[in-house]
Amino acid sequence: MNTRDVDIAGERLTLHPERAIYWAAQRTLLLSDVHFGKGAVFRRAGIAVPSGDTDDDLRRLDALIDTFQPHRVVILGDLVHGAATSRSAWVDDVRAWRARHAGIDIVLVAGNHDRHFDVASLGIFVQPDRLAVPPFVLSHHPHAHAGGYVLAGHVHPGVVVRDGWRKHRLPAFVFDRAVGMLPAFGTLTGLHEVNAAPGRQLFASTPAGIMVVR
């Protein structure tokens, strides 16, 4: 799949169609809003959704790690969706996945959903607030910060792209003057439509690669 390099705050970032960013200068993979266990929460509530979403997301994450060989993975909030029960197989799956990547630092900048589960029990370091890695401030909520350019999640940004009479709703990377937003990584996450604005850069994630949105 075709990636795209962009210059943000003087740093070169690689946008990947699997809805992640690789920051080569820091050997760091960035993603947001994985929402592990969301399918299980829905099924407990009687909502019929297919199982296997956690396995799919872990395979996608494995592929990104194989591609970039990062030293560090930073999740910008909402790694998990909600509380787990004794029947929540996703917990064992994620813990086993973490063990397979014991040589990589994995950090979660805690999001609003993460309060429902002890993410540290998965072997993942939890940063309770923002993480400053100049020139960036890594956060869950996309609010400007005096400490640097903010990279965040939370919103699940997406765009509508028209192809003749058809409309496609696609996850998107959004870069404003002081804040950038990553699309949600998780399989069972929705989209919040964002529009073009002065000074804004929009990049859609498509099956064929990263597309500039005019």
Rank of each mutant, 00 (worst) to 15 (best):
H71C: 09
K167L: 12
G148F: 08
D62G: 05
R59P: 01
W90M: 06
R115P: 00
L79R: 04
V161I: 15
A89C: 05
L191W: 07
A84C: 10
L170K: 02
H143N: 11
V161Y: 00
G190K: 10
D78N: 11
G180H: 02
A96E: 14
H101E: 04
F173L: 08
D163F: 12
H116A: 15
G111Y: 00
R177S: 14
Y149P: 01
P70G: 06
I124Q: 03
A89L: 15
R166V: 08
F136I: 08
P134D: 07
H81E: 14
S139D: 14
R162N: 12
V137G: 02
A146L: 13
V109Y: 02
T187V: 15
T54I: 11
R100P: 00
V91M: 07
S88P: 01
P70E: 09
L58K: 04
G180Q: 04
T187Q: 14
V133T: 06
F68S: 12
W97C: 13
Q69I: 07
G123I: 10
R100L: 14
D55I: 09
D163K: 11
R59L: 13
V179T: 10
F68R: 11
A110V: 02
D176S: 11
R177Y: 00
V126S: 02
G77S: 06
P157F: 01
N112W: 04
D93L: 15
R169C: 04
D114C: 05
H101D: 04
F185W: 09
H71M: 09
P142D: 08
T67H: 13
P142M: 08
L138R: 09
S139M: 07
G52V: 13
A184Q: 05
V80E: 00
F117Y: 12
V174I: 02
D78L: 09
R98N: 10
G77C: 07
P128H: 11
H141T: 12
H81G: 08
G82H: 05
G190E: 13
G180R: 02
V159L: 07
W90Y: 14
D118G: 00
A152G: 09
A110D: 01
H192A: 12
A152W: 02
P70L: 10
W165G: 02
R166F: 05
P134L: 03
I106H: 04
F175E: 01
A172L: 11
W90D: 13
L182H: 05
P157A: 04
L170W: 03
L64C: 03
P135H: 01
R100E: 14
A184D: 05
V107N: 02
S88V: 01
G158W: 00
H154F: 13
G77Q: 03
H156I: 02
L182G: 03
R177A: 14
